[in-house]
Amino acid sequence: MKRSRFPFVATTLILVFLYLPILVLFAQSFNDARFGGSWNGFTLKWYKLLFEHRGVITATENTLIVAVTATLLSTVLGTLAAWALHRFQSRMQKVHQVLIYGPLVVPDILMGISLLLLFVNLSVPLGLGTVIVAHSTFGLSYVAFVVLGRLQEFDHSLLDAARDLGAGSWTTLWRVLLPLLWPGIAAGALLAFTLSLDDFVITFFVAGPGSSTLPVQVYGMMKHGQPALINALSVLFMSATFGIVLASQFLLRKRYD
């Protein structure tokens, strides 16, 4: 039976649709013209200007501080949560599960406003701290989700085997459980890290003066017209994210069977 060519054509067109704007962005970042109407020649001046931009530099620092701290917090909490969800089947875990899945389902803007209301109510000053807390909250859900997925294919007789061969709980944890789970934990951590880098809406609500992250900075620049600079920034930002994603893809694919 001859297969229809329609799915192939559709997929190709959709890939063009997905990549066209990104390619335009790449090209624009090297275009000497301020807007995309004409090609005035190749330039690196936007990149040069970018590295001299105070706001961008501060925002980059903030972004990294937030992403690293939130990733650490959410990886520890998310991994513990995944283990608890996997290991126990009590009523408490049902509540636990609903709480874990909540942040995955709720739209960003609801999470942003609800956290803002909480911080205002408790008179917590908005700043890097509130951004970190917000990012850890959705980050831990994603980590738990990824690690739980890995745990579901984990062979529990391996833990029995380790104990049977004389290993106590601690040795089993370090020699068997963590070595086998770490690709999943690392992939979860990378996901939390990229999502933290990426988040705009929630950060926009809970960031205070001086705690802008890069996406918030980009938003400001988009509103107050410096498009050529954003092109260059986007290209750098995107390259960094793609690097992380490729690394996590590699980790997730690493399996022993």
Binding site: V95, N121, A144
Partner: peptide, 24 residues
């Protein structure tokens, strides 16, 4: 052990997800 593993995330998410959602 279940309490020790579960309480950190439950407390975190009740405080920073469930309560804020109710606040809305």
């Amino acid at each position: 052990r279940e309490w020790a593993l579960t309480l950190p995330t439950i407390i975190w998410l009740v405080l920073l997800f469930a309560v804020p959602t109710a606040l809305v």
